[in-house]
Design a protein around this nucleic acid. Structure first.
Lengths: 117, 117
DNA sequence: GGTTCATATTCCTATATAGGCATATATCAT
DNA sequence: ATGATATATGCCTATATAGGAATATGAACC
């Protein structure tokens, strides 16, 4: 099997850095495709394709405005990622992380060298 | 070009559902590979390969314990994902949604007519 | 030594990209 | 209708998978 399709879910869609960049721009407000082309410095077809992926997973919405198509962020679709991270949030939001690092080091020192030669 | 390597960063590594499952199990504590094999119902080589990807992006650490290799979560490596989501978090927080509505109203009023009424 | 248990690596194949480029579609203007 | 603008789609290729199967490494124990 190959990798899961980029349109499988938000996780896969957002794995691509370019698509995250697009979302970052759209976070500033609704934008036509050519704005994204200019800002990101990508070729127009590439941008349209990325937008299609983002649209298929529901992370962006479109509406027609004359000959332009205005893309809009729908951050709700990113919530599953945030929800998944909830489980791990503790590791970097509390002071436990410092303790964990220390413990980890001690542990590795203890086990790491089994006496090789 | 093909897709970015799964080992490019945490975003790509975690895009695969199986690898997220592995992390979810490891969230419960350090585990040897065979535990993961049993819990996930995957073939052992597949699990080892997934673990390698997770290790390469720093999301898990290993230590040797006899003939076993104990894998341990390193959630710190997931922080970049969480940080990136910070920008969008606002969208699914109900409190801010309400606030947005209020702010929009105020803004429209302000722009609509300059003075008090 | 040889054997068993635990894990990693190699080889294989089908598949889905991302980007380049050309072209199609759609809308507006004249 | 013709042309210009804005966006989408189709075709192409190189590449990196994920999983299956077999095999290799390594550690413990006889």
């Amino acid at each position: 099997m190959a990798r899961a399709a980029t349109t499988t879910d938000a996780f896969n869609a957002v794995a691509e850095a370019r698509r995250r960049q697009i979302l970052d721009v759209l976070a500033g407000g609704e934008r036509p495709v050519n704005d994204l082309v200019d800002v990101l410095g990508l070729a127009q077809p590439q941008v349209s394709k990325h937008l299609r992926v983002l649209r298929e997973v529901g992370v962006v919405d479109v509406r027609n405005a004359g000959r332009q198509r205005l893309y809009r962020l729908n951050a709700q679709a990113l919530k599953p990622i945030h929800d998944w991270l909830k489980t791990y949030e503790r590791s970097w939001s509390e002071r436990f992380d410092q303790l964990d690092v220390v413990l980890d080091h001690l542990k590795q020192k203890e086990e790491g060298d089994g006496g090789d030669e």
